[in-house]
Each structure stands twice: as C-alpha cells, then as structure tokens.
Design a protein around this nucleic acid. Structure first.
Length: 449
RNA sequence: GGCCUCAUCGUCUAACGGCUAGGACACAUCCCUUUCACGGAUGAAAUCGGGGUUCGAUUCCCCGUGGGGUCACCA
C-alpha cells in the first residue's frame, strides 16, 4: 500500500445480467479517474442478492473488463463479507441507530427485518459534477437495511464496503442520486468519512430514455464478437459525456488516462450512437499493425475462404485490400457473404455487354482494348508478375487510348463486378495464367462483336 | 403525482458575460478517379419559451415548457 493519501474509487456491478455501454461507461470513468490520479481502482461484485446473482454474469464482467483493458487493483465479492456486515448491523442496533422489526412478508412468513432509525433531516452533499444537491430524507421513513443480521441489503452493503475499503470517490450513474442521502445517513451513523460523489449523466437510447436491453442495447461483450476493437469502444464510451475541449477525438487508453478530468464531464445524458462508434472503430483500425489486422480479421472469413487464401499464399495481400473498405471486422464477413470476394476464387460469370465502358460507342472498341491489354500483359515474364509490373505494362496504352475505355473492360473481365478494387490489384493477386485466361474468356465473349 | 435533475445543429459536443455560435459523426454537392472504397473541398443544419440583470446574455437569476431519473424485504 502507498503511504500518501490517494484516490480510491471503484466499479460495483451486480452480476445479474449482461451489461451494456451505459454500465461500462461508469467503469471507464471511474477507471480513468483513478489512473489519472495514480490512485486505486477496486472492482466489487455486488452479489448480495443470492437469487439473482449468477456466476456466468460475473465471468462476463471479468472478461469484459479485461477485454476493455480496465485493470483493477483489488477484487472482492460482497457475499464474502457477510461476517463484517453482520457485525456492522449489530453495532447499529446496539447503538439504537437501527432496530429489529418483525414484519409479515408477502408469503405470510414473519421475518425480523432491520430498519434504520431515520433522523428525518435535510441532507446536502456537493456532487463533483452537479454541485450542491439537497434532499429531505423525511419521506424515506425508517428504511430497511437488512432482511436479517446475515442478509444485508444494498444501501448497507454499499456504504459498509466503501468505508471498509477506503473508497473516497464514488463515481456512479445519475440514477443513484436519490439513493445518496440515505447512504450519507448510514455513513453518519457509522461515523465514517463521507466520500466525494460524482454522478454521471445517463447513457440514453435513441428515444432519450435510459439505455436498456429492451431498447435494443447490446451487451458490451457482444461488440467483441461483432469485430469491434476494444480501444475503439473504450474511446467512444469515454467520449460520451466527456471531452477534452480540443478538436481531437481519437485517443489511446494512455491518452485518455492522461487527459481525463471530472470537471469536463457533461451534465446531460448522451445518446449511444452506433454509427459514430463504427467511425471510431474505423479510425482505430487504421492505427493497428498489419499483423494484428490480419490475425484478428482472418477468422471473420469462412473456413473455405481462409483455406483458399492460405493455398494461394495471398492472405496478407487480400486482407490489406479489405482494410480500407471496412469499419469493423464483421464487415469482412459481410463482404464475403455478399459475394464480393468470389472473383478471387473462380472466374466470374457476366453478360458480354457489361464489358463495355459507359462512354464507349460499341463493343468493338472494348474488344480492341482487351486484345491490346492481353498483348501487353503477356509480355510480362512470369517471375516479375506484380500489380506494379501489370500497371507498367498497360498504363501508357491506357493513357493514350483512354483510361476508362481500357481499364473498365480489363477490370470487368477479371472481376465481373460493377464495384471492385482496380484491375492491377486484382491481376496481381490472380497471377499471370489466370489473368490471361480471364481476358481470353472476355475476348471470346465478344467474338461476334 | 412527490422529490431530484437536465436543456447549443438529427447525434456527440466547443464557446473568461464580448468576432459571422466553432468542430466531429451522419447527410448533400463537387473534385480526384476505369468502378467501388480512400482522400480533398464546399453546403445545409442549433442556443426550448417568456421575463429580468447588463453597454452587451448560449453563458448569470426567476418563471414556464419539455425531457430524464427515482420513489422495494433489487442493485
């Protein structure tokens, strides 16, 4: 442990479901705040509700935190601290700050609930983002803090655990503002130091209501499977409700840590916009190494296509060709599924008419140009066949005869597609034999023209 | 409904009380270009309303309006 007083903050999810960006935004801000101040970041699993808490959800939280790169200094589960909670509740009762109240539940069984003895006062706290907030706690009544000595409830465990772990900055969602006064009451009863609160504005669905699964919000872990980069998600989530004030938007985790500050956090909610997320992803995709792009992007192609690429030895060339045309890795899968990559595997099937460039009068011109192209590329020695050498062989003729008139038929003969990479790129991948074969096919289609 | 809270382009946002309210995403047009993509340029697009304070209000105050959150033996 460090000796100097430091920032201690935490992220405290309850493992009762899969979490969307709204929940993780809290984690991101708490993390950035802690790291910026070289403080301690605690991950606390709030599993006091034994019925609703599930191991799979806890695993999902741990995996997502690690995927996003949100490292924590300390991890604990509330369920492991029942003893501590029990003694705190007993102390409260002994000091007459809480009392046991036998009450009948909905099931007709009488249980000994523990209720907090509310002093009915006005509580004011200064929120780091919103400033002073005042609330009268009278209408809260003597709220329940435990279902029994060994079954503590949310408000008690939150305060107990934060106090026990020395948390001095509570960064959480806006939806907890109304919980804060009663938690402050508990701090006072415990004689513990009240932390600084920072309530973050909510992340909203497109209809401006709180983001939720019902509103179609995806779990953050789902974005991993959809081929998003963790640094893009982190960057975008951090940008929701916070900004540096400058014009740059793309930041690495380290840059975010360096720049983060609570006083630049927005007060109003922000709509989660997947379109902008995709843009962030594209920007981050541009920055990663070619090796990483290939390693991560390849699995999004079918096994069949992966096999074909491996056999041809062109995996790297083809994937880097895709790189500037996609926003997420999943776009690679979509590209293959829509047949965009078929011409790399087998000769295209198309109507002869389509070989003609839009500005040419008839197919006779097309045929002439294809024959000239064929002649030019045939002269390239097998061993020096590259996209550059193909370009060199054809370029001067194309410039003289009209680039569109020459290059459109050339490209179409190779791909059979209205849209594709340029013919040199494709010829480079296909190799000399296949390129010549496809030009021949095109010319024979035009035999009668 | 009570309590709390928020309010700048469609969205995310910038603007010591002081230039023509700036940028990004998306959109449109144009350029580059054999096509697509990339890239470049341009454009359309906002201070919720009403009162104050002030020489001057996006900014400060009040009142409306609208949105959101929250009101458990969940967290």
């Amino acid at each position: 442990m460090k000796i100097k007083p430091q920032v201690v903050t935490r992220f405290a999810p309850s493992p009762t479901g899969l979490f969307h960006a709204g929940t993780y935004r809290t984690a991101v801000f708490a993390y950035l705040f802690a790291r910026h101040h070289e403080g301690t970041f605690i991950l606390r699993i709030e599993d006091t509700d034994r019925i609703r808490s599930k191991k799979v959800y806890e695993d999902n939280i741990l995996e997502t935190m690690s995927w996003l790169g949100l490292s924590y200094d300390y991890l604990h589960r509330q369920s492991e601290w029942v003893k501590e909670h029990e003694s705190i509740i007993k102390n409260l009762v002994n000091r007459n700050q809480a009392y046991v109240s036998p009450e009948k539940g909905e099931d007709g069984v009488t249980r000994e609930l523990v209720r907090f003895r509310n002093q009915n006062k006005v509580v004011t706290f200064t929120d780091a983002i919103r400033g002073p907030i005042t609330m009268n706690t009278t209408d809260l009544g003597d709220f329940v803090i435990a279902k029994s000595f060994t079954e503590p409830l949310f408000h008690l465990t939150v305060v107990a655990d934060d106090a026990l772990t020395g948390v001095n900055h509570v960064i959480r969602g806006d939806d907890h503002i109304s919980n804060t006064p009663r938690q402050i009451l508990i701090y006072e009863a415990l004689g513990a130091t009240i932390p600084t609160y920072a309530h973050l504005p909510l992340v909203l669905a497109p209809d401006r209501s709180k983001l939720s699964k019902r509103k179609g919000a995806r779990a953050v872990s789902e974005y991993r499977d959809l081929g998003f980069l963790p640094e893009a998600l982190l960057n975008y989530i951090a940008s929701l409700g916070w900004n540096t004030g400058g014009v740059e938007e793309i930041f690495s985790k380290e840059e975010l840590v360096e720049r983060f500050s609570l006083d630049q956090v927005q007060k109003s909610g922000a709509i989660f916009d997947e379109v902008k997320l995709r843009w962030f992803n594209r920007e981050h995709l541009k920055k990663i190494s070619s090796d990483r792009f290939i390693a991560e992007g390849l699995p999004f192609l079918s096994k069949r296509m992966q096999g074909i690429l491996k056999e041809s030895g062109q995996t790297e060339v083809i994937l880097s060709l895709l790189r500037e045309r996609i926003e997420t890795y999943d776009d690679i899968r979509a590209l293959e599924e829509s047949g965009e990559l078929e011409y790399l595997v087998e000769a295209p099937i198309y109507e002869a008419e389509k070989l003609k460039w839009k500005q040419d009068p008839d197919l006779a011109v097309t045929k002439t140009h294809l024959e000239a192209t064929l002649g030019a590329v045939s002269k390239i020695p097998e061993g020096t066949w590259t996209k550059e050498s193909v370009r060199e062989a054809v370029w001067s003729y194309a410039e003289a005869a009209g680039k569109g008139s020459v290059l459109w038929p050339f490209r179409f003969a190779l791909t059979g597609k209205d849209k594709s990479p340029d013919p040199f790129e494709v010829a480079g991948i296909l190799g000399k034999d296949e390129t010549i074969r496809r030009i021949h096919t095109a010319i024979s289609k035009l035999a009668h023209a």
